Amino acid sequence: MQAREISPKLRELIHLASSLEPALATRLEEIWRWIKDIKSGSLTQKKFLMGFLLELIKDTEFWLELKVLTDDERQLFFNQIAPTVRYWYEYLFPKWFKERDLKFYIWKQKLRSGEFEREDGTLIESIASEIKSREGTFVQRYVADFSMATDIIVSSNTGKPLCVQVTSMADEFSHQKYEDWKHTLQGWKIERGIFVSYNPAKYEFVIQLVNLVWHNSNHLAEAKYLKFSF
C-alpha cells in the first residue's frame, strides 16, 4: 500500500467499524486525525510510522472479518491458529482499542517526529528466528511494544503465550524499568511476562534466552513477572 492510500483506507475502515465495533472506529478516527495532514512524501520517509499504520490496517481488516463470523465459527477459527496470534486478536488487540491507552499520546508524538528507533530490533529478529526453528510461534506488534511494554509475544509448541521485554540497560540500573514494565503489564491485565536485561556485546546468549522463554511458556504461573540478566 502506498502512503497516499493510507488516509482513505482508514476512512473506509472507520465506516465499516462504526457499526461492527464502535470502539475500534473511535480509535481509528483518532489515528486518522493524527496523520491526515502528513503529506505522502513525508509519510513514506517515516518508516516506523508507516510500519505502524500498515500493521494497524491489516489488524483492523482481520478483526472486522472475525467480527462478522458467528460465535461458533469464530471459536473454530481461533482453535486452528497459533496461540500467539489468537492471544493478540482475541485479547490484546481488542483490549487496546476498547480501553484507555495511557502511553498513546507519548508514542504518537515520537512516531510522528521520527524519534522512535527499534534499538533491539536485531536481537528480537534473532529470538523470533530461533523460536520459529523450534516450531514455536511469535507475534510482534508496534502497539504491544509502544503501549504494553512487550517486544515480542512467544509460545512454545506446547505452551501458552508469554510477553517478553528485553533491554540493553545494565542489570544494576534496570530495576526501575522492570518495575515500570511490571506495572504496565498488570495495567493491561497481562498475567505472565519475563523481563531480560542483556549485554549487547554477548549475542551468544540468544539460545539461552530462547531456552528460558521456552521453559516459561510452558511453566510460568499466572500473575508472575520474572526478571533475568545475561
Rank of each mutant, 00 (worst) to 15 (best):
Gln75Ala: 13
Ala144Arg: 00
Leu66Gly: 12
Thr44Gln: 15
Arg141His: 02
Ser18Leu: 09
Leu92Ser: 03
Glu5Asp: 11
Ala17Gly: 13
Phe146Met: 14
Glu65Asn: 15
Phe228Ser: 07
Gln186Gly: 09
Ile57Leu: 08
Gln75Glu: 13
Trp88Lys: 06
Gly114Ala: 07
Ile31Gly: 04
Phe205Trp: 15
Gly159Asp: 06
Ser147His: 00
Glu73Leu: 08
His183Ala: 08
Leu28Arg: 02
Glu12Val: 13
Gly193Arg: 10
Ala128Asp: 13
Ser156Asn: 06
Glu55Phe: 11
Lys95Gly: 02
Leu53Asn: 00
Ser42Lys: 03
Val85Arg: 05
Asp71Asn: 08
Ile190Asn: 00
Lys202Pro: 01
Glu191His: 07
Asp101Leu: 05
Glu12Phe: 14
Pro200Arg: 06
Val164Asp: 05
Phe116Lys: 14
Glu115Val: 02
Trp181Cys: 07
Glu117Met: 03
Lys103Arg: 14
Tyr178Val: 00
Thr44Arg: 12
Tyr91Gly: 01
Trp214Met: 11
Trp96Arg: 00
Phe195Tyr: 14
His175Asp: 14
Glu21His: 06
Ala23Trp: 13
Glu21Leu: 07
Lys58Arg: 09
Thr26Asp: 15
Lys103His: 09
Ile38Gly: 11
Leu162Ile: 07
Phe146Trp: 09
Glu5Phe: 06
Leu162Phe: 11
Phe228Glu: 03
Trp107Pro: 01
Ser133Gln: 13
Glu29Lys: 12
Met1Ser: 03
Ser147Met: 01
Lys189Gln: 04
Gly193Met: 10
Gln208Ile: 04
Arg192Trp: 05
Leu20Asp: 06
Glu55Thr: 15
Val210Ile: 05
Ile124Cys: 14
Ile190His: 05
Ala149Pro: 01
Glu172Lys: 11
Phe77Val: 14
Phe138Thr: 04
Leu53Thr: 00
Val143Glu: 15
Thr184Glu: 00
Arg4Glu: 10
Ser126Thr: 09
Leu123Trp: 04
Ser156Glu: 02
Pro94Leu: 09
Lys67His: 08
Gln45Lys: 13
Asp145Gly: 00
Ser147Asp: 03
Arg33Tyr: 05
Ile31Gln: 12
Leu64Ser: 07
Thr122Ser: 11
Glu65Val: 13
Asn199Leu: 08
Ser129Ile: 04
Asp171Lys: 14
Trp188His: 03
Glu5Tyr: 14
Leu212Glu: 14
Glu130Gly: 10
Glu90Leu: 11
Leu220Glu: 03
